[in-house]
Simulated assay, not measured.
Amino acid sequence: MASSSNLFLLAALLALTSWQAIAYDPSPLQDFCVADMKSPVRVNGFPCKDPMAVTPDDFFNDARIIGQPRDTTKSKVGSNVTNVNVINFPGLNTLGISLARIDYGPLGVNTPHIHPRATELLTVLEGTLYLGFVTSNPNRLFSKVVKKGDVFVFPKAMIHFQMNLAHDKPAAALSSLSSQNPGVITIANAVFGSDPRISDDVLARAFQVEKKLIDWLQSQFWENNNY
């Protein structure tokens, strides 16, 4: 009897382990799969470039892409995001990782958003940031003030944000994301700037405000922060 119980428990644990294993992207089946951006084939990801045509440059990204501060003065929210993902770095294809540099002007904000396909690990390069994320129900906020050298993690698909607390100095951070193409949904853009627009009746009811306020919000230009 005890033996049967042990076997049942082992089978249950194996089933749970198998379920957890398929809950994330599968492991690559080869050493690399440099994306062939010219291929007409459309798959969940990108087709592989011929391995014999791959060069060291396919695994290299110029430091000027992410190593230099970006202009934040043209942004309504005072921030600028520079991505290094499979779109501009084909060697990342199937490797499950990407980077982003975020530059913040004085009091600049990387507005509330989510990455539907990635957990984000943020390292502060310069300045002092107020940041946080909100959990699913119940909507609990986890926030903290972080400084140069500090690291903070935003769990996958949680609404999160950052703000430069300095009135007179810029700030910068580097984010590592657990997807070659993490995606981004900026909350304000998605709710008030979708195309076509969400019905103002729906939004007025959802936010418990008058429709004229919703109409005004939808008439504004919503910032695309390139994240």
Rank of each mutant, 00 (worst) to 15 (best):
G105I: 04
I65H: 08
Q68E: 12
P40I: 14
V86Y: 01
Q162N: 06
D58C: 12
R70K: 14
S143I: 10
K144P: 02
F60Q: 08
T128V: 15
A171N: 08
F152G: 03
P56M: 10
H160N: 13
R70A: 13
M37F: 11
V41Q: 15
I65Y: 02
R117A: 08
R117S: 08
V151P: 06
S75L: 10
V124S: 02
G127K: 07
T135F: 04
N85D: 15
I159Q: 05
N44E: 14
P138N: 02
P51Q: 10
R140I: 15
H160V: 01
V54M: 05
F60W: 10
V145N: 00
L121S: 01
N139T: 13
D50E: 09
S136K: 05
G149M: 07
L177R: 05
F60D: 00
P40F: 09
L99D: 00
I159L: 15
F152Q: 02
D62T: 09
V153N: 03
S75Q: 06
K49P: 01
G108K: 03
A53E: 14
N164S: 12
M37R: 14
D150R: 03
V77C: 05
L129K: 03
P47W: 07
V145M: 02
P51F: 06
S136N: 10
D62S: 14
F133I: 03
D62Q: 09
A35N: 07
M37N: 09
M37D: 06
G78M: 08
P155V: 06
L177H: 03
A53Q: 14
V54F: 10
F59C: 10
I66M: 03
V146P: 01
L92R: 01
G45A: 11
P56H: 11
A35H: 02
G96A: 10
K147F: 08
I159T: 11
S75N: 12
V153H: 00
L177K: 11
K49M: 14
D168V: 07
T82D: 01
P155L: 05
H160F: 12
A172C: 11
N164Y: 03
A63Q: 04
D58T: 09
L95N: 04
T94P: 04
T135M: 10
N139C: 11
V77Y: 06
I66E: 00
E120P: 12
E120Q: 12
G45N: 10
N88D: 13
K38T: 15
V86G: 04
T111V: 15
L121E: 05
E120R: 00
G132K: 02
R140K: 13
M163A: 13
A118D: 08
G91S: 11
N88K: 07
V84Q: 01
I102D: 01
T55Y: 00
S176E: 02
G45Q: 03
P51C: 12
S136Q: 07
D57T: 14
D103M: 08
E126V: 12
R64N: 12
V146E: 01
R117E: 08
P106E: 11
F154D: 01
G108E: 06
D168A: 11
D58G: 09
K169W: 07
